[in-house]
Amino acid sequence: MHTVRIQDRPFSYGTESDSFAAAAGPAGAVVTFLGRVRDDGGRLSVMEIEHYPGMTERAVTAILDEAVTRWDLTAGLVIHRHGRIAPGEAIMMVATAARHRAEAFAAAEFLMDYLKSRAPFWKKEFGPDGAEWVAARDADEQALDRW
C-alpha cells in the first residue's frame, strides 16, 4: 500500500497513523513523522503553501516509489497539504513500514529530504510585518548528497 495525498483540508495524524499501521501488513517497524507550522513567538499569523497541481503528485509519487524500492518498504504514505495553514497545524506527514526499524527510519528521512527540495511546494509566511516567501536553504540541498 503506497499512498500519496495532496490536499488542502486538514488531516488527523492519529487516525492516519493508526490506519497506516493496520494496513501495513506483517512489517515489524512503522515510522511516522509529522511536520507542523512553527509558531516562532507569534511572528507568524498564517502560512500559505502554493503547489504545482499535476507535477506535485508526479514528483511525490516518484520520490515515494524510490523509497519503497530502496528500502523494500511494505507500505509508504505521504500526505502534504497546500493552502492556508495556521501555526501549530499539520502541514504534512510521512509513514513508512519495513521489516526492521533501520529501513523504516532511513526511508522516512529520505522522504523528508526529497520532499523539502524536490516536490513543487512553495511556502509563504504572513505576519504582522507583511508577507514573505520562505527561501530554500543550502543545507536542504546538501542533505540530498547523503542519499
Binding site: 514528483a59 527540495s117 513543487p120 540541498e141
Partner: peptide
C-alpha cells in the same frame, strides 16, 4: 512537462514549461 529540467534543455515538443523558485516543501 512537469519534470525538472535545465536552462540548456531543448523545448521541442514540450507542451508545458514552468518557472518557479527553489522548492520549499516538507
Amino acid at each position: 512537462d512537469q519534470e525538472l529540467a535545465d536552462f540548456s534543455s531543448p523545448i521541442a515538443g514540450v507542451r508545458e514549461v514552468a518557472f518557479f523558485p527553489p522548492m520549499t516543501g516538507g
